[in-house]
Amino acid sequence: IRLAAFVAKAVSNDPTAVPASTALSMATRLGAAALHLGALTGSLEPGKRADLILVAITPAHNAPRFRRDAHNAYAQIVYASKASDVTDVMVNGKWLMRDRQLLTLNEAELLVQAQEYARRIDTFLIEREQSVLSKLVALGGSSEEESFEVQVKVKLDDPAPVQEALRRPEVKIVYQRHYHQHDNYFNFSDPSQGRLRYREDEFIGPKEEVVNSRVRLTLIGPAREGGFRHDVLLSRSRYLAPATNSLRFYREYFKPTSVVPIDKVRLRWLVNFRDTEFYVNLDHFETPKPVDYLEIKSRTWSRSDAEHKAQLATELITFLGGSLRKTETRDYIEIVDKKKGIR
């Protein structure tokens, strides 16, 4: 009640807005009318429910009491009284509390039950704090996916030949995308927890303008790998969730031991090369250190399919002008040198 009166005065810059009598009516008669219960309650009248409270006005915080104006009683209740001043409560003609003693509830039992709920909540929170996944799920909106893919990266001295090669007829481009990706990788002391990535994607239009954006969290589990000569078969579980809060919030919530930022501009093509689809990513890193990488990926579903795609990925690297001597199978975050940046 007090807050409603104060907010009205602050918003209108008028100290007379929503006087105490109006604020009290909003909590009683007008509130009941707003809920379409005005015929049942909200005021003490014949035929309505006897819903009332008695309020002690003797505590020191209720002093002094002014008697010149009868409306001062409203101000006393709205501006000075507290919930603890309520001594008696009647609902629909039945006393529920008399002289601060509950008549229909066992207060001692309620306190015991409340403490038990507190213990269970403490247990849940302690267990949740020990698991990054549990904390992510608690935020809501997360989904799990298992990915199997062949991937390989190649460090480039010059990315221009890659784009020139993609224009050749041997490669059919299904679509092309342009992103600015701002990643923050959360590392934890226990490697089995995986690594959490906070990613801000900015989708870039044909005029180099930002046409859309997306922010999400990805919990990346440890990878199970099967290596080929130049490629690697990765099997990993991932949990995705929309990021609806700030980076600072997630840093305080997940409490990582370290956070590694990586900013890059990504040109992505979905291409068909020798009747097989591959994602071709041309990544220019802005932080931690300027460098260019070519990344080739393809989803797979069996060992034989992975072997076939691994061979084609090697041929695609050569076709795009990459050097097989510079191939890299680790994730970007694993390539990062904290002192020198991307190697």
Results as ranks from 00 to 15, higher is better:
112 V>K: 13
112 V>E: 12
112 V>F: 11
113 Q>Y: 10
113 Q>N: 11
113 Q>P: 06
113 Q>K: 15
114 A>V: 03
114 A>S: 11
114 A>I: 03
114 A>F: 09
114 A>K: 12
115 Q>Y: 11
116 E>C: 07
116 E>T: 09
116 E>W: 09
117 Y>A: 12
117 Y>F: 15
118 A>E: 14
118 A>T: 14
118 A>M: 14
118 A>I: 11
118 A>G: 13
119 R>G: 06
120 R>F: 10
121 I>W: 13
121 I>R: 15
122 D>C: 06
122 D>Q: 12
122 D>A: 12
122 D>E: 10
122 D>V: 05
122 D>S: 11
122 D>I: 03
123 T>H: 10
123 T>D: 07
124 F>N: 11
125 L>N: 04
125 L>R: 09
125 L>E: 08
125 L>C: 07
126 I>M: 11
126 I>K: 14
126 I>L: 15
127 E>N: 08
128 R>P: 05
128 R>Y: 07
128 R>E: 08
129 E>T: 09
129 E>Q: 14
129 E>F: 10
129 E>A: 13
130 Q>E: 07
130 Q>F: 05
130 Q>K: 09
131 S>E: 04
131 S>H: 02
132 V>S: 02
132 V>D: 00
132 V>G: 00
133 L>P: 00
133 L>V: 02
134 S>T: 05
135 K>F: 01
135 K>N: 04
135 K>Y: 03
135 K>E: 04
135 K>H: 04
136 L>A: 02
136 L>W: 01
137 V>M: 13
137 V>R: 13
137 V>W: 12
137 V>P: 07
138 A>G: 06
138 A>R: 07
138 A>E: 05
139 L>T: 02
139 L>F: 01
140 G>R: 02
140 G>D: 01
141 G>E: 02
141 G>S: 01
141 G>Q: 02
141 G>W: 04
141 G>T: 03
141 G>I: 05
